[in-house]
Design a protein around this nucleic acid. Sequence first.
RNA 1: GGGCCAUUAGCUCAGUUGGUUAGAGCGCAUGCUUGAUAAGCAUGAGGUCCCUGGUUCGAGCCCAGGAUGGCCCA
Length: 942
Amino acid sequence: MSETDDRDYRATLNLPQTEFPMRADLPKREPGRVAWWKEHGTFARRLAKNKADGNPHWILHDGPPYANGELHMGHFLNMVLKDVFVKIALLDGKQTPFVPGWDMHGLPIELETLKHLGIKDFHAIDPLELREKCKERALYWLDRQRDVRVRMGNFGDWDHPYMTIAPEFEATIVETLAALAEKEQLYRGLRSTLWCIHDETALAEAEIEYEPKTSPSVYVRFKATDEQAAEVLSHFVGADVASTGSSTVIPSVGSEATGVEGPPLSVLIWTTTPWTLPANVAIALSADAEYGLYRVGDELLVLATVLAPKALGDAFADATRIGTATGAQLDGLSVRHPFLDRDSLLVLADYVELETGTGAVHTAPGHGADDFETGVKYNLPILNPVDARGIFTQEAGPYAGMHIWKANKRIVEDLQASGALWRMHEYEHSYPHCWRCHNPVIFRATAQWFISLDMNHLRQNALDAIAKVAYTPEWGQNRQSQMIETHPEWCVSRQRTWGTPIPALICQRCNDSFLDPAVARRAAARFRVAGAGTWWSDPLETFAPADSTVCPKCGSTAFEREKNIVDIWFESGVTHFAVLGTPDLPWPSDLVLEGGDQYRGWFRSSLLTAVAVKGTAPYKHVVKNGWVNDEHGRPMSKSKGTGIDARDAMEKWGADVLRLWAASVEFVDDVRFGPNVVGQVGNVYRNVRNRIRFMLSNLYDFGTTDVVPRERLEPLDALACDVTDDFADNVVADYHAFGIHDAYLRIVEFDRSMSSLYLDALKDPLYSRAANDPRRRSAQSALFYILRRLLAVSAPVLSFTTEEAWQSLSEDLRGAEQSVFDLPLSVAHGRDTAEAVRRWDRLRGLRGRVAASTEPRDFEARVALSAVPAFAKELAALGDGLREALVVSAVTLVASDAADADGTLEIAYAHGAKCKRCWKYRELGTAEAHAEICADCASVVA
RNA sequence: GGGCCAUUAGCUCAGUUGGUUAGAGCGCAUGCUUGAUAAGCAUGAGGUCCCUGGUUCGAGCCCAGGAUGGCCCA
């Protein structure tokens, strides 16, 4: 019985065992885990526990994605981040129900539905039928998107999402309108609004995209009559008509030919929208700018002097400036419209810029926001000669019946023929387009419903509310304020079908529209029961019972209902009212988290409705996440085919690797995503996974009865636990500061430090000691503790992997904590972990120096270590743990004042020979029966 | 064109109130290990901190201008 080969001794070791696979196979396994969470009600159970514990609420209110199209990686980042924060709060013991929601009304879905149905004109289908079809489509997209969100591993009340098309939600929308009407925050007014002539609807600012467009750039003469010319001339300093020296009589042009003597005088304007000329009523000048009176050939032209060289072009060389005047001096004068029988007034406006054009700005109050303001200021007629489809009305004179884009060309030709055109060329510029149909939009004066930003100090109140909200990043607060400061009056009405009706009535006698709060409240009550479609289908008496409503203007009691619907930004702006404000979901929310575009979108619309109705912000903290660009930092675009679908990405890489990616980038800034970036994160994932696997694999024979209390752990194990506490505390602190990326770095670093120092050192005691040796049980107790805390703090990010690992432990070890989401995030321990970390780092430094030795290396070596007394004492306290940590066969330690601060090392070959079983260098054969192994091993084998 | 933001190793990122030789992880190269093995350990290479000026004894950090990219607008 002398010969014993290695293989036999190998069988006597406690080598690691686990079912937890090295290969993650995430795309294949994750769907099963999603089903498992659902089946076990993991989220709901923990919520119930947190509630039973009487812990506080922490509500993240979901900004609704639009229920149209597939979710991309930008959605993934945002939605997973929300989930990470919800899970942090959940593990922290908070009551943190998450109610996801969808934005489901609106033009994009209506258009997609029409396309799906193959219908080109929305007038061709009955509104109620179209609404049914839109609802089907919206629900279809909700289902698809919900599947993807659930697949991400996100926790939430997926069976009861909020939907803007739900009857209760529609009721909330209308109730909010009623509340705004009661507070006189809502009014109906004529406004020059952005209008899409293709979709035949007013558009909100947020529904506009700027795209390049080529327009005719035209310079047009607005000629003065004799009398007007004399008046204009009298305001120019230095102008002397007699000295112009011209004797040529230029025949007058235009409809108001006067056959004047002397040179004709015109104000030269510039425009890129000739079709708006029929609505021209004024020419705006800059009050302070200098205007010149130029003699060019046989005529006189008025324009800003700084722009004259550019505007006059070749003719500038021969032009003579014979007088100047400021804009202010010309205020109130008139010239003639180039082809209609009326005057155009010279007015002042501060938006007149002197970069392009002539400094004399064609002003059509019906076709421009600035123009409209000027029109109101000067009490000018608001002409609107264009109908909803972009066809000129009778008001446009000779162009009646013509489409505006066609009229552009025709008007230029006519101007040319009449001599009013000075110059024309093609001009490419960035022009507003409809975000959905991508056709150029126009400004058009129409009657719309508005929320006033300045009535009742709403704008100022909103700014005050912002000051009380926390923003991440901090500059978001300033940005949000700017978005309120520059917010124009909010047009909330739309002329489409798929939406919530604005329950306004039109008086049949005086034709005035009004929104009676009582009518709105009745509508809300009805919608809550039977949906908003009842506005169209129910008899009017349902909303305005006979004699209960009178026209505020004329007292009539005969009405029709208005057919406008509400802007979907208003709908998403009331999600906080619809979802929050219950005992389980208090208002306001603790956090909202969306992309940076929402400062202008949902953050703003939510804020305004909340401040208007309740006086304060609907959230306490606003966090913005960055944009997801491709690997080169360029925007991902669906149309260019560079966009990556969230579902596809999860099928390829798995949700957990992508979740780790979300943590690996600084989400507040713009981030990059692509195969190379994911590949890198995949490597990190593999490392983390393997180290978790190693810990699991050494707990296969460990149970609750084997647990060694913290106070009785071996010193090295206790140190590792202290370091783990420090690590976990810091991760939690990072989480609380929204530092997901900081937490990620910390986890990766901890993982590496644990692995290279501690886990490596533990192999020998774990493998070679007897299974129930106290040293081994101590190590296992520490491993279990470390694993448990590592899994808990990693679970918000690596939800799938941590749960998989937790489930790989015995039921005995898991105990009452069935799921990793039953674990506590923080553990109160009251230890000075900072000191432990310093000791750990010093030990790690020593280990590094020893490990760098190649001859001898590892167990071949023995170490003679001399350290200054304090350090020596610290190391001596580790007992044999010091030798274990250095992974050598023997260590001698002496205290010496002469030693280096970080210890003086002497590494030599160890005495004895390599034990065939434990590989350490020892005296062999002390046990009779086992010649090739050491005494310790012999005692185990025996 | 305007506002806001970003720019540090091949990649993802740290760099405290300006203060020695700018750090980590991943990747890469090399060596070891083969009892975590499609794993583990160690060593190493790799940086004009976007550029140009300025302030300062001293600047990755502060100031000004510019470049590139992104978001939101016009």
